[in-house]
Amino acid sequence: MNQTQGIDRASLLSEANDMIAEHELAFPGLIATDVEQNGDVLVFRGDYFLDEQGLPTARSTQVFNVFKFLATTLSARYHLEE
């Protein structure tokens, strides 16, 4: 079983946003504003840049891919301490 390190929400979001800033798909305004633990997976949330009708845009796909990268990378290292 893979052991992960406990981390508080604020520290995890700080690390996640540092990683976003360095990500090749990052663009201004793309930030993680919340995170929750769902089983062994960390789920990141933020603005998904939907259009006026609430439909996904090209930026929505970028956000999804960056948040998926964060979930994959950071879930292997950390779990949320509540």
Rank of each mutant, 00 (worst) to 15 (best):
M1W: 03
M1N: 12
N2Y: 09
Q3D: 13
T4Q: 12
T4N: 04
Q5C: 06
Q5F: 01
G6T: 09
I7M: 03
I7L: 03
I7N: 02
D8I: 00
R9H: 12
R9Y: 05
A10E: 13
A10V: 06
A10M: 08
A10D: 12
S11T: 15
S11R: 13
L12C: 02
L13V: 11
L13W: 00
L13Y: 00
S14V: 06
S14N: 14
E15P: 05
E15V: 10
E15S: 07
N17S: 11
D18I: 01
M19K: 07
I20E: 12
A21G: 08
A21T: 02
A21I: 03
E22L: 14
E22G: 06
E22R: 15
H23D: 09
H23K: 08
L25H: 07
A26I: 05
P28D: 10
P28E: 05
G29H: 03
G29Y: 06
L30K: 06
L30V: 00
L30T: 00
I31G: 05
A32E: 13
T33V: 06
D34K: 08
D34A: 01
D34Q: 05
D34E: 07
V35F: 05
V35T: 01
Q37V: 06
G39D: 13
D40V: 11
V41A: 12
V41L: 13
L42K: 04
V43N: 08
V43A: 11
F44T: 06
F44W: 13
G46F: 04
D47A: 00
D47T: 03
Y48V: 07
Y48S: 10
Y48Q: 10
Y48E: 12
F49D: 07
F49I: 04
F49A: 02
F49Q: 06
F49T: 00
L50Y: 03
L50I: 01
L50P: 01
D51H: 03
E52K: 13
E52A: 15
Q53A: 15
Q53P: 07
Q53T: 09
L55K: 13
L55V: 06
L55Q: 15
L55N: 15
L55F: 08
P56W: 03
P56D: 11
T57V: 02
R59A: 13
R59T: 03
S60V: 05
T61Y: 11
T61W: 10
V63L: 03
V63P: 09
F64E: 12
F64S: 09
N65V: 02
V66K: 01
V66F: 04
V66L: 09
F67V: 11
K68Q: 14
F69R: 05
F69E: 11
L70M: 07
A71V: 00
A71E: 15
T72Q: 14
T72F: 12
T73H: 03
T73V: 09
L74P: 13
S75M: 05
S75Y: 02
A76R: 04
R77T: 04
R77H: 08
H79Y: 15
H79L: 11
L80S: 09
E81V: 00
E82N: 14
E82G: 10
